[in-house]
Design a protein around this nucleic acid. Structure first.
Lengths: 209, 209
DNA sequence: GGCTTTCGCTACGAGCCGTAGCGTAACTGG
DNA sequence: CCAGTTACGCTACGGCTCGTAGCGAAAGCC
Protein backbone atom coordinates (compact mmCIF):
# COMPACT_ATOMS: atom_id res chain seq x y z
CA UNK A 1 0.00 0.00 0.00
CA UNK A 2 2.55 2.58 1.08
CA UNK A 3 5.85 2.57 -0.68
CA UNK A 4 7.49 4.06 2.43
CA UNK A 5 11.26 3.82 2.38
CA UNK A 6 11.39 1.71 -0.78
CA UNK A 7 11.57 -1.49 1.25
CA UNK A 8 14.65 -3.59 0.50
CA UNK A 9 13.09 -6.28 2.68
CA UNK A 10 15.79 -8.91 2.80
CA UNK A 11 14.65 -12.42 3.72
CA UNK A 12 15.06 -13.66 7.26
CA UNK A 13 15.05 -11.71 10.47
CA UNK A 14 12.24 -10.32 12.57
CA UNK A 15 9.42 -8.97 10.42
CA UNK A 16 8.17 -5.46 10.85
CA UNK A 17 5.14 -5.19 13.03
CA UNK A 18 2.10 -4.41 10.89
CA UNK A 19 0.27 -3.46 14.03
CA UNK A 20 2.79 -0.72 14.65
CA UNK A 21 2.21 0.60 11.14
CA UNK A 22 -1.50 1.15 11.50
CA UNK A 23 -1.07 2.41 15.06
CA UNK A 24 1.43 5.03 13.93
CA UNK A 25 -0.75 6.24 11.07
CA UNK A 26 -3.80 6.40 13.32
CA UNK A 27 -1.81 8.25 15.96
CA UNK A 28 -0.64 10.68 13.30
CA UNK A 29 -4.20 11.47 12.27
CA UNK A 30 -5.23 11.89 15.89
CA UNK A 31 -2.33 14.25 16.48
CA UNK A 32 -3.27 16.21 13.37
CA UNK A 33 -6.76 16.71 14.73
CA UNK A 34 -5.60 17.81 18.15
CA UNK A 35 -2.47 19.75 17.36
CA UNK A 36 -2.47 20.53 13.67
CA UNK A 37 0.47 20.26 11.34
CA UNK A 38 2.88 22.75 12.82
CA UNK A 39 2.64 21.58 16.43
CA UNK A 40 2.76 17.91 15.57
CA UNK A 41 6.00 16.30 16.73
CA UNK A 42 7.26 12.86 15.86
CA UNK A 43 8.08 12.12 19.46
CA UNK A 44 4.48 12.75 20.40
CA UNK A 45 3.18 10.54 17.61
CA UNK A 46 5.46 7.74 18.74
CA UNK A 47 4.19 8.00 22.29
CA UNK A 48 0.55 7.99 21.16
CA UNK A 49 1.18 4.91 19.03
CA UNK A 50 2.92 3.13 21.88
CA UNK A 51 6.06 2.86 19.81
CA UNK A 52 9.64 3.98 20.26
CA UNK A 53 10.65 7.10 18.39
CA UNK A 54 13.45 5.22 16.69
CA UNK A 55 10.98 2.74 15.21
CA UNK A 56 9.15 5.60 13.58
CA UNK A 57 12.33 6.96 12.03
CA UNK A 58 13.23 3.52 10.69
CA UNK A 59 10.11 3.56 8.53
CA UNK A 60 9.55 7.16 7.55
CA UNK A 61 12.12 9.72 6.56
CA UNK A 62 10.36 12.54 8.38
CA UNK A 63 7.19 14.39 9.20
CA UNK A 64 6.25 15.03 5.59
CA UNK A 65 6.30 11.44 4.42
CA UNK A 66 4.49 10.26 7.51
CA UNK A 67 1.64 12.73 7.14
CA UNK A 68 1.23 12.02 3.44
CA UNK A 69 0.71 8.34 4.17
CA UNK A 70 -1.59 9.11 7.08
CA UNK A 71 -3.74 11.44 5.00
CA UNK A 72 -3.66 9.33 1.84
CA UNK A 73 -5.51 6.59 3.69
CA UNK A 74 -8.50 8.91 3.92
CA UNK A 75 -8.82 8.84 0.15
CA UNK A 76 -9.37 5.11 0.07
CA UNK A 77 -13.10 5.66 0.36
CA UNK A 78 -13.25 7.69 -2.84
CA UNK A 79 -15.54 6.07 -5.39
CA UNK A 80 -17.76 7.21 -8.16
CA UNK A 81 -20.92 5.18 -8.49
CA UNK A 82 -22.80 5.64 -11.74
CA UNK A 83 -25.61 8.03 -10.91
CA UNK A 84 -27.11 8.05 -14.37
CA UNK A 85 -26.07 11.46 -15.64
CA UNK A 86 -22.93 13.53 -15.97
CA UNK A 87 -24.35 16.22 -13.73
CA UNK A 88 -25.14 13.75 -10.97
CA UNK A 89 -21.72 12.15 -11.29
CA UNK A 90 -19.91 15.47 -10.95
CA UNK A 91 -22.05 16.45 -8.01
CA UNK A 92 -21.32 13.12 -6.38
CA UNK A 93 -17.57 13.35 -6.72
CA UNK A 94 -17.58 16.93 -5.50
CA UNK A 95 -19.50 16.01 -2.38
CA UNK A 96 -17.31 12.99 -1.70
CA UNK A 97 -14.17 15.01 -2.06
CA UNK A 98 -15.67 17.68 0.17
CA UNK A 99 -16.54 15.10 2.81
CA UNK A 100 -12.89 14.10 3.04
CA UNK A 101 -11.71 17.69 3.16
CA UNK A 102 -14.19 18.44 5.92
CA UNK A 103 -12.34 16.12 8.26
CA UNK A 104 -9.90 18.07 10.42
CA UNK A 105 -7.05 15.64 9.93
CA UNK A 106 -7.28 16.18 6.17
CA UNK A 107 -7.63 19.93 6.48
CA UNK A 108 -4.59 20.25 8.68
CA UNK A 109 -2.37 17.88 6.80
CA UNK A 110 -3.14 18.12 3.14
CA UNK A 111 -2.27 21.73 2.45
CA UNK A 112 0.87 21.51 4.54
CA UNK A 113 2.32 18.55 2.68
CA UNK A 114 1.44 20.11 -0.66
CA UNK A 115 3.26 23.23 0.45
CA UNK A 116 6.28 21.16 1.38
CA UNK A 117 6.16 19.25 -1.89
CA UNK A 118 7.04 22.42 -3.76
CA UNK A 119 10.66 22.06 -2.68
CA UNK A 120 10.76 18.27 -2.43
CA UNK A 121 10.34 16.30 -5.63
CA UNK A 122 10.24 12.93 -3.91
CA UNK A 123 7.43 14.13 -1.71
CA UNK A 124 5.60 15.44 -4.73
CA UNK A 125 5.76 12.03 -6.40
CA UNK A 126 4.52 10.41 -3.23
CA UNK A 127 1.51 12.74 -3.14
CA UNK A 128 0.91 12.28 -6.83
CA UNK A 129 0.83 8.51 -6.71
CA UNK A 130 -1.11 8.14 -3.48
CA UNK A 131 -3.64 10.95 -3.81
CA UNK A 132 -3.68 12.90 -7.05
CA UNK A 133 -3.66 10.02 -9.50
CA UNK A 134 -6.46 8.33 -7.64
CA UNK A 135 -8.62 11.41 -7.95
CA UNK A 136 -7.78 11.86 -11.58
CA UNK A 137 -9.00 8.36 -12.33
CA UNK A 138 -12.46 9.38 -11.16
CA UNK A 139 -12.49 12.22 -13.65
CA UNK A 140 -11.49 9.92 -16.47
CA UNK A 141 -14.10 7.38 -15.47
CA UNK A 142 -16.91 9.89 -15.24
CA UNK A 143 -15.85 11.36 -18.53
CA UNK A 144 -15.86 7.99 -20.25
CA UNK A 145 -19.31 7.24 -18.95
CA UNK A 146 -20.63 10.57 -20.13
CA UNK A 147 -19.23 9.90 -23.58
CA UNK A 148 -20.95 6.50 -23.67
CA UNK A 149 -24.22 8.18 -22.74
CA UNK A 150 -23.69 10.68 -25.53
CA UNK A 151 -23.53 13.61 -23.10
CA UNK A 152 -20.02 14.49 -24.19
CA UNK A 153 -18.51 14.19 -27.65
CA UNK A 154 -15.82 11.56 -28.24
CA UNK A 155 -12.33 12.88 -28.63
CA UNK A 156 -10.05 11.42 -31.25
CA UNK A 157 -6.71 12.94 -30.40
CA UNK A 158 -5.54 11.14 -27.25
CA UNK A 159 -3.14 13.91 -26.38
CA UNK A 160 -5.80 16.58 -26.52
CA UNK A 161 -8.09 14.34 -24.51
CA UNK A 162 -5.46 14.05 -21.78
CA UNK A 163 -5.04 17.81 -21.69
CA UNK A 164 -8.76 18.28 -21.36
CA UNK A 165 -8.97 15.75 -18.56
CA UNK A 166 -6.16 17.49 -16.70
CA UNK A 167 -7.93 20.80 -17.12
CA UNK A 168 -11.20 19.45 -15.78
CA UNK A 169 -9.45 17.83 -12.87
CA UNK A 170 -7.69 21.04 -11.92
CA UNK A 171 -10.95 22.94 -12.11
CA UNK A 172 -12.95 20.52 -9.99
CA UNK A 173 -10.33 19.72 -7.38
CA UNK A 174 -9.08 23.30 -7.30
CA UNK A 175 -12.52 24.80 -6.81
CA UNK A 176 -13.47 22.39 -4.04
CA UNK A 177 -10.18 22.83 -2.22
CA UNK A 178 -10.30 26.58 -2.55
CA UNK A 179 -13.87 26.78 -1.31
CA UNK A 180 -13.19 24.48 1.63
CA UNK A 181 -9.76 25.63 2.75
CA UNK A 182 -9.23 29.19 1.53
CA UNK A 183 -12.72 30.63 1.57
CA UNK A 184 -13.42 28.30 4.48
CA UNK A 185 -17.07 27.94 3.64
CA UNK A 186 -19.04 24.71 3.48
CA UNK A 187 -19.22 22.62 0.34
CA UNK A 188 -22.84 21.60 0.71
CA UNK A 189 -25.39 20.31 -1.77
CA UNK A 190 -26.38 23.80 -2.84
CA UNK A 191 -22.85 24.76 -3.68
CA UNK A 192 -22.19 21.46 -5.43
CA UNK A 193 -25.24 21.98 -7.62
CA UNK A 194 -24.31 25.54 -8.50
CA UNK A 195 -20.78 24.49 -9.30
CA UNK A 196 -21.93 21.59 -11.46
CA UNK A 197 -24.27 23.86 -13.36
CA UNK A 198 -21.47 26.33 -13.96
CA UNK A 199 -19.07 23.64 -15.09
CA UNK A 200 -21.56 22.09 -17.48
CA UNK A 201 -23.27 25.13 -18.95
CA UNK A 202 -20.65 27.81 -18.55
CA UNK A 203 -20.78 31.32 -17.20
CA UNK A 204 -23.01 32.78 -19.86
CA UNK A 205 -25.82 30.33 -19.23
CA UNK A 206 -25.48 29.56 -15.56
CA UNK A 207 -26.42 32.94 -14.20
CA UNK A 208 -30.04 31.90 -14.45
CA UNK A 209 -29.47 28.92 -12.15
CA UNK B 1 -0.54 48.93 4.74
CA UNK B 2 0.10 46.09 7.11
CA UNK B 3 -2.00 45.97 10.22
CA UNK B 4 0.80 44.07 11.99
CA UNK B 5 0.41 44.06 15.74
CA UNK B 6 -2.50 46.51 15.76
CA UNK B 7 -0.25 49.49 16.40
CA UNK B 8 -1.18 51.39 19.56
CA UNK B 9 1.38 53.98 18.48
CA UNK B 10 1.44 56.36 21.43
CA UNK B 11 2.82 59.81 20.75
CA UNK B 12 6.42 60.63 21.52
CA UNK B 13 9.41 58.37 21.63
CA UNK B 14 11.65 56.98 18.91
CA UNK B 15 9.66 56.07 15.81
CA UNK B 16 9.91 52.64 14.28
CA UNK B 17 12.36 52.43 11.45
CA UNK B 18 10.49 52.13 8.18
CA UNK B 19 13.73 51.05 6.58
CA UNK B 20 13.83 48.05 8.87
CA UNK B 21 10.31 47.13 7.83
CA UNK B 22 11.01 46.87 4.14
CA UNK B 23 14.38 45.25 4.79
CA UNK B 24 12.77 42.54 6.90
CA UNK B 25 10.07 41.80 4.36
CA UNK B 26 12.60 41.69 1.54
CA UNK B 27 14.85 39.43 3.59
CA UNK B 28 11.88 37.17 4.27
CA UNK B 29 11.17 36.80 0.56
CA UNK B 30 14.82 36.12 -0.15
CA UNK B 31 14.90 33.47 2.56
CA UNK B 32 11.75 31.90 1.15
CA UNK B 33 13.41 31.58 -2.23
CA UNK B 34 16.60 30.06 -0.87
CA UNK B 35 15.32 27.95 1.98
CA UNK B 36 11.60 27.51 1.54
CA UNK B 37 9.02 27.75 4.27
CA UNK B 38 10.03 24.95 6.55
CA UNK B 39 13.72 25.78 6.76
CA UNK B 40 13.18 29.49 7.15
CA UNK B 41 14.13 30.71 10.62
CA UNK B 42 13.43 34.10 12.11
CA UNK B 43 16.97 34.39 13.33
CA UNK B 44 18.22 34.01 9.78
CA UNK B 45 15.77 36.59 8.48
CA UNK B 46 16.90 39.06 11.11
CA UNK B 47 20.52 38.56 10.15
CA UNK B 48 19.77 39.01 6.46
CA UNK B 49 17.87 42.20 7.16
CA UNK B 50 20.68 43.56 9.33
CA UNK B 51 18.32 43.74 12.26
CA UNK B 52 18.28 42.29 15.76
CA UNK B 53 16.06 39.28 16.28
CA UNK B 54 14.22 41.08 19.06
CA UNK B 55 13.24 43.88 16.70
CA UNK B 56 11.58 41.35 14.48
CA UNK B 57 9.59 39.88 17.34
CA UNK B 58 8.48 43.34 18.45
CA UNK B 59 6.66 43.76 15.13
CA UNK B 60 5.43 40.33 14.15
CA UNK B 61 3.98 37.66 16.36
CA UNK B 62 5.73 34.86 14.52
CA UNK B 63 6.71 33.20 11.27
CA UNK B 64 3.16 32.98 9.95
CA UNK B 65 2.31 36.65 10.24
CA UNK B 66 5.66 37.69 8.85
CA UNK B 67 5.36 35.52 5.75
CA UNK B 68 1.80 36.62 5.06
CA UNK B 69 2.90 40.24 4.97
CA UNK B 70 5.95 39.39 2.88
CA UNK B 71 3.90 37.48 0.33
CA UNK B 72 0.95 39.87 0.33
CA UNK B 73 3.19 42.56 -1.06
CA UNK B 74 3.52 40.50 -4.24
CA UNK B 75 -0.18 40.95 -4.89
CA UNK B 76 0.12 44.72 -5.09
CA UNK B 77 0.74 44.46 -8.80
CA UNK B 78 -2.61 42.77 -9.44
CA UNK B 79 -4.77 44.81 -11.80
CA UNK B 80 -7.37 44.13 -14.36
CA UNK B 81 -7.26 46.47 -17.35
CA UNK B 82 -10.32 46.46 -19.56
CA UNK B 83 -9.44 44.21 -22.46
CA UNK B 84 -12.72 44.67 -24.27
CA UNK B 85 -14.37 41.33 -23.68
CA UNK B 86 -15.17 39.04 -20.80
CA UNK B 87 -13.05 36.28 -22.25
CA UNK B 88 -10.04 38.54 -22.57
CA UNK B 89 -10.55 39.87 -19.06
CA UNK B 90 -10.67 36.40 -17.55
CA UNK B 91 -7.62 35.34 -19.49
CA UNK B 92 -5.81 38.43 -18.30
CA UNK B 93 -6.53 37.90 -14.64
CA UNK B 94 -5.61 34.23 -14.87
CA UNK B 95 -2.26 35.02 -16.40
CA UNK B 96 -1.55 37.77 -13.88
CA UNK B 97 -2.37 35.53 -10.99
CA UNK B 98 -0.24 32.80 -12.52
CA UNK B 99 2.67 35.17 -12.90
CA UNK B 100 2.64 35.84 -9.17
CA UNK B 101 2.33 32.16 -8.33
CA UNK B 102 5.25 31.36 -10.59
CA UNK B 103 7.60 33.28 -8.32
CA UNK B 104 9.34 30.92 -5.91
CA UNK B 105 8.76 33.11 -2.87
CA UNK B 106 5.02 32.97 -3.50
CA UNK B 107 5.04 29.25 -4.19
CA UNK B 108 6.90 28.46 -1.00
CA UNK B 109 5.01 30.78 1.26
CA UNK B 110 1.42 30.97 0.12
CA UNK B 111 0.33 27.38 0.57
CA UNK B 112 2.12 27.12 3.89
CA UNK B 113 0.38 30.09 5.45
CA UNK B 114 -2.97 28.96 4.11
CA UNK B 115 -2.35 25.61 5.72
CA UNK B 116 -1.53 27.31 9.00
CA UNK B 117 -4.60 29.52 8.75
CA UNK B 118 -6.82 26.49 9.16
CA UNK B 119 -6.08 26.42 12.88
CA UNK B 120 -5.52 30.13 13.36
CA UNK B 121 -8.47 32.43 12.84
CA UNK B 122 -6.48 35.61 13.23
CA UNK B 123 -4.10 34.46 10.54
CA UNK B 124 -7.04 33.61 8.30
CA UNK B 125 -8.41 37.13 8.64
CA UNK B 126 -5.00 38.56 7.87
CA UNK B 127 -4.82 36.51 4.67
CA UNK B 128 -8.37 37.36 3.77
CA UNK B 129 -7.93 41.09 4.07
CA UNK B 130 -4.50 41.33 2.49
CA UNK B 131 -4.81 38.81 -0.34
CA UNK B 132 -8.18 37.17 -0.86
CA UNK B 133 -10.37 40.25 -0.80
CA UNK B 134 -8.10 42.02 -3.22
CA UNK B 135 -8.45 39.15 -5.69
CA UNK B 136 -12.18 38.98 -5.23
CA UNK B 137 -12.50 42.62 -6.19
CA UNK B 138 -11.08 41.80 -9.59
CA UNK B 139 -13.79 39.23 -10.13
CA UNK B 140 -16.49 41.69 -9.18
CA UNK B 141 -15.02 44.34 -11.42
CA UNK B 142 -14.74 42.07 -14.43
CA UNK B 143 -18.23 40.81 -13.81
CA UNK B 144 -19.68 44.32 -13.66
CA UNK B 145 -17.96 45.26 -16.91
CA UNK B 146 -19.31 42.17 -18.62
CA UNK B 147 -22.80 43.03 -17.49
CA UNK B 148 -22.42 46.54 -18.88
CA UNK B 149 -21.33 45.08 -22.19
CA UNK B 150 -24.35 42.80 -22.15
CA UNK B 151 -22.20 39.65 -22.05
CA UNK B 152 -23.70 38.60 -18.75
CA UNK B 153 -27.26 39.11 -17.52
CA UNK B 154 -27.89 41.53 -14.67
CA UNK B 155 -28.74 39.95 -11.39
CA UNK B 156 -31.43 41.46 -9.24
CA UNK B 157 -31.08 39.57 -5.97
CA UNK B 158 -27.90 40.96 -4.38
CA UNK B 159 -27.51 37.92 -2.17
CA UNK B 160 -27.60 35.52 -5.09
CA UNK B 161 -25.19 37.76 -6.93
CA UNK B 162 -22.75 37.57 -4.04
CA UNK B 163 -22.98 33.80 -3.99
CA UNK B 164 -22.34 33.63 -7.71
CA UNK B 165 -19.34 35.90 -7.41
CA UNK B 166 -17.90 33.75 -4.63
CA UNK B 167 -18.42 30.65 -6.74
CA UNK B 168 -16.66 32.16 -9.72
CA UNK B 169 -13.82 33.34 -7.58
CA UNK B 170 -13.31 29.91 -6.04
CA UNK B 171 -13.34 28.32 -9.49
CA UNK B 172 -10.84 30.71 -11.03
CA UNK B 173 -8.44 31.01 -8.12
CA UNK B 174 -8.78 27.36 -7.22
CA UNK B 175 -8.09 26.11 -10.72
CA UNK B 176 -5.04 28.32 -11.18
CA UNK B 177 -3.58 27.44 -7.80
CA UNK B 178 -4.22 23.75 -8.30
CA UNK B 179 -2.66 23.75 -11.73
CA UNK B 180 0.39 25.68 -10.58
CA UNK B 181 1.05 24.15 -7.18
CA UNK B 182 -0.50 20.69 -7.11
CA UNK B 183 -0.24 19.56 -10.70
CA UNK B 184 2.91 21.66 -10.90
CA UNK B 185 2.46 22.40 -14.56
CA UNK B 186 2.76 25.79 -16.24
CA UNK B 187 -0.16 28.18 -16.49
CA UNK B 188 0.65 29.47 -19.97
CA UNK B 189 -1.43 31.20 -22.60
CA UNK B 190 -2.70 27.92 -24.00
CA UNK B 191 -3.96 26.75 -20.67
CA UNK B 192 -5.48 30.12 -19.85
CA UNK B 193 -7.40 30.08 -23.14
CA UNK B 194 -8.66 26.56 -22.62
CA UNK B 195 -9.73 27.37 -19.11
CA UNK B 196 -11.50 30.54 -20.16
CA UNK B 197 -13.33 28.66 -22.87
CA UNK B 198 -14.43 26.04 -20.39
CA UNK B 199 -15.56 28.61 -17.86
CA UNK B 200 -17.55 30.59 -20.40
CA UNK B 201 -19.09 27.87 -22.52
CA UNK B 202 -19.21 24.94 -20.13
CA UNK B 203 -18.14 21.36 -20.44
CA UNK B 204 -20.68 20.32 -23.03
CA UNK B 205 -19.59 22.90 -25.54
CA UNK B 206 -15.91 23.31 -24.82
CA UNK B 207 -14.76 19.86 -25.89
CA UNK B 208 -14.55 21.18 -29.40
CA UNK B 209 -12.08 23.89 -28.44
C1' DG C 1 20.41 -23.28 18.03
C1' DG C 2 22.55 -19.88 14.98
C1' DC C 3 21.66 -15.90 11.96
C1' DT C 4 19.31 -11.79 10.87
C1' DT C 5 16.44 -8.03 11.48
C1' DT C 6 13.46 -5.28 14.34
C1' DC C 7 12.19 -3.59 18.68
C1' DG C 8 12.21 -0.51 22.99
C1' DC C 9 15.00 2.26 25.67
C1' DT C 10 18.35 5.78 26.96
C1' DA C 11 21.30 9.34 25.98
C1' DC C 12 23.23 12.87 23.35
C1' DG C 13 24.73 17.20 20.47
C1' DA C 14 22.69 20.31 17.69
C1' DG C 15 19.52 23.88 16.29
C1' DC C 16 15.72 27.02 16.85
C1' DC C 17 12.33 29.32 19.72
C1' DG C 18 10.75 33.23 22.26
C1' DT C 19 11.90 36.24 26.15
C1' DA C 20 14.44 39.05 29.59
C1' DG C 21 17.63 42.43 30.70
C1' DC C 22 20.63 46.08 29.72
C1' DG C 23 22.66 50.17 27.79
C1' DT C 24 22.18 53.19 23.82
C1' DA C 25 19.83 55.84 20.08
C1' DA C 26 16.10 58.72 18.26
C1' DC C 27 12.43 61.76 18.65
C1' DT C 28 8.92 64.90 21.43
C1' DG C 29 7.34 68.35 24.50
C1' DG C 30 8.32 71.74 28.00
C1' DC D 1 18.64 72.11 26.42
C1' DC D 2 16.80 68.60 29.13
C1' DA D 3 13.61 65.19 30.95
C1' DG D 4 10.40 61.59 29.24
C1' DT D 5 9.24 57.99 26.13
C1' DT D 6 9.81 54.59 22.85
C1' DA D 7 12.65 51.73 19.65
C1' DC D 8 17.00 49.58 18.88
C1' DG D 9 21.12 46.23 19.12
C1' DC D 10 23.22 42.90 21.78
C1' DT D 11 23.80 39.00 24.87
C1' DA D 12 22.26 35.28 27.36
C1' DC D 13 19.16 31.89 28.71
C1' DG D 14 15.72 27.72 29.51
C1' DG D 15 12.99 24.85 26.88
C1' DC D 16 11.72 22.13 23.21
C1' DT D 17 12.34 19.22 19.11
C1' DC D 18 15.26 17.01 16.03
C1' DG D 19 17.64 12.98 14.29
C1' DT D 20 21.13 9.54 15.54
C1' DA D 21 23.97 6.19 18.15
C1' DG D 22 24.45 2.37 21.03
C1' DC D 23 22.73 -1.26 23.72
C1' DG D 24 20.33 -5.65 25.05
C1' DA D 25 16.18 -8.25 24.14
C1' DA D 26 12.60 -10.15 21.07
C1' DA D 27 10.89 -12.47 16.88
C1' DG D 28 11.10 -14.63 13.03
C1' DC D 29 13.82 -17.96 9.15
C1' DC D 30 17.15 -21.90 8.01
Amino acid sequence: MQSRTSAPRATGGRPRSVTADVAILAATRAALVELGWSKLTLGDVATRAGVAKTTLYRRWAGKNELVVDAVAALFDELEIPDRGSLAADIEGVVLQFAAILARPEAKSGLMAVVAESIRDDALRDRIRSSIVERQKLLVLEGRARAQQRGELPEENDPEAAARTADLIYDVIAGAVVHRALVSAEPVDTDWAQSFTMLLLKGLTASATA
